[in-house]
């Protein structure tokens, strides 16, 4: 009968721990609010981080305890947000549509090249290897880092070498902001139509010699806009968006270099027939 001892011991141990588990499951159970699971199910589940939370589940927890409003989620559609608000019996809140905008307008046709980059495609790789060949060392490199990083497939590098952000797909998550080695993306409300599309810290001819659409810090937009809306900070105009309501397209009319823009809809359009002579190459 000795061959039964070993199985008997194993069964005994199994029963012993099984009972402990069963008892502790009853006694130490943590009641989780079932609404968290349900809310999480209603969220898009992309874990993009646009709401400022690490993912969708932490966001759902914050929603249930009432710390955040459902409209903080920029990915979910208006209907989804309405459903969540109804389910949790809370106010949906209001949030403006946010989109990613690029502080650079110098594509292949506008920015001057000083060298050709032949390494593998990637903005950061190019930026590390001698700045990627563009004369302006602050501008967009156009080598697909943001396109690759975008979770929502909202960015396409257009034929001009600039990232075209699809405002319908863009959810204002920070993917492109983190990917850009030149730190050019920022998330702004779609209602802000006046936008400075350059980040060059040079003024006058020093700036325009590098790029045809560089801001030369002439200050005409500051004069033309309603008082207090635009101010010059170092060599770039800074728009005070708290007074956004008074912004009008007049401010951009006299811009000699097209570096301040009145943007309706998408920032960049696909351009046909680019001027071939646009690229000036130094000897």
């Amino acid at each position: 009968m000795s061959f039964l001892i070993a199985p008997a011991i194993m069964v005994g141990i199994g029963l012993f721990f099984g009972i402990i588990l069963a008892v502790s499951h009853r006694l130490l159970r943590v009641e989780e609010d079932p609404r968290i699971e349900a809310t999480n199910g209603m969220l898009p589940g992309t874990n993009c981080g646009a709401c400022g939370q690490p993912g969708c589940l932490p966001f759902a927890e914050k929603l249930v305890v009432g710390e955040l409003e459902p409209s903080k989620c920029t990915v979910a559609s208006a209907d989804d947000i309405e459903n969540i608000a109804d389910y949790l019996q809370i106010d949906a809140g209001r949030q403006e549509k946010l989109v990613a905008r690029l502080r650079c307008g110098g594509g292949k046709a506008q920015a001057h090249q000083i060298a050709e980059y032949h390494g593998f495609e990637g903005c950061r790789a190019a930026a590390v290897a001698s700045g990627g060949g563009k004369g302006c060392s602050w501008g967009c490199l156009g080598l697909y880092d943001c396109e690759v990083a975008c979770t929502f497939d909202a960015i396409r590098i257009n034929s001009n070498g600039l990232p075209q952000v699809d405002i319908d797909k863009c959810t204002a998550c920070p993917d492109c902001i983190n990917a850009c080695p030149r730190d050019l993306f920022e998330v702004v409300p779609l209602s802000q139509k006046l936008y400075v599309q350059c980040s060059i810290p040079l003024a006058g001819e020093a700036a325009t010699s590098l790029c045809a659409v560089a801001c030369d810090a002439c200050g005409k937009c500051v004069v033309d806009a309603s008082p207090g809306l635009i101010r010059m900070e170092n060599t770039l105009p800074v728009i005070d968006y708290s007074t956004n309501a008074v912004a009008t397209p007049e401010a951009v009319f006299r811009c000699a270099t097209d570096s301040i823009k009145w943007i309706e809809g998408n920032q960049f359009q696909e351009q046909e027939n680019l001027p071939i002579g646009g690229q000036k190459k130094y000897a």
């Binding site: 981080g49 400022g52 790789a125 920070p174 902001i177």
Partner: peptide, 18 residues
């Protein structure tokens, strides 16, 4: 080149805006 790219990203890492 890929490793250098990663090192550059780690060095210039910025905090994710909330």
């Amino acid at each position: 080149q890929l490793i250098r790219t990663g090192k550059d990203d780690l060095r210039t890492r910025k905090e994710t805006p909330a």
